[in-house]
Amino acid sequence: MSMQLRASPHLHSGRDVPTIMRHVVYALLPVCAFSIWQYGLSSLALIVTVTLSCLAAERISNKMSGTVNTLSDWSATITGVLLALTLPPAFPLWMGAVAGFAAVWLGKSLFGGLGHNPFNPALVGRAFVQAAFPTAITTWAPAFTPQRFVEFIPSSLTLPLMQPNDITTWVSANMVDGFTGATPLARWKFEHFVYPVEDMITGAASASTGETSALLLLVCGLYLIARKFMDWRIPVAVVGSALLLALAFRLFGGDEYPPAHLVLLSGGLMLGALFMATDMATSPVSPRAIWAYGAIIGTVTILIRYFGGLTEGVMYAILFGNALAPLLDKYLQPKVFGARK
């Protein structure tokens, strides 16, 4: 959505929150379909479980706070789908449900519902399970196993509150050659291994459910941008700053740092830049603030990936950007015509 702060008169565009949200869901459907094609039942069940738990959490908090039913504004659905797409495909379903409740309750309801939340709820949910279950959230499963449409990845069906079922025997039983269980970013960080580009586009690399194909994400994002449901400046600023920084590090730092295409195609950068950072409630509205916001997210992502203990930094970078958004709006707001400082 492109929004500019202008003086009156204002015309209503005929677009309201539910319409925009609905189109975001449409744009995410191909990403979901692709992940189900890759990971089969487990991915489908994860997306359904997380989304349903987000909807349930929304309904319960509606009831408890005595406010109107907000299920129909699609925002809980988006939170659920986005959250599921950021989780690893072998993530136990019960943990997915915990993530869904944490996302809606901690991320949104406690602040007063949609529009009052300072942080992207889906990322709050993911941050919560990242802190709660650090091992499960970094356990990756291979894609395109032959039995994926008839059987679950064993860890998906873990009993609630229990440790994820071990998947090593399942991985070897499926004879996935060369599966290392590490993401392209992790393999760079620990082995300086450059993942083949085609693997990162066709979804063969280990990754979260919805971030396996940077190309598909880009296409879906472009749809939203073309329909003007999304502010194009945010993803451009995020990806652009990350790319510039990656190129600069590669140029001046040499082989110590990963090649720029690896930075762009791997991990959650595309998903985050296109679908998370652009969340209307948690991003700034004035043009200069938007550019600054995007640049901060891109920069922090690179800093965490290169110098942090974690391999991936998009999530924390966006949450950090969210926290700064009101401040950026305040200090970088456009001057009112004729006003003097």
Binding site: A132, F133, L159, M162
Partner: peptide, 16 residues
């Protein structure tokens, strides 16, 4: 309470 296969919620024993 839940047997040996319980998955601890690490975040709960951390300050957050």
């Amino acid at each position: 309470l839940f047997g040996e296969h319980f998955q601890p919620w690490v975040v709960m024993v951390l300050p957050p």
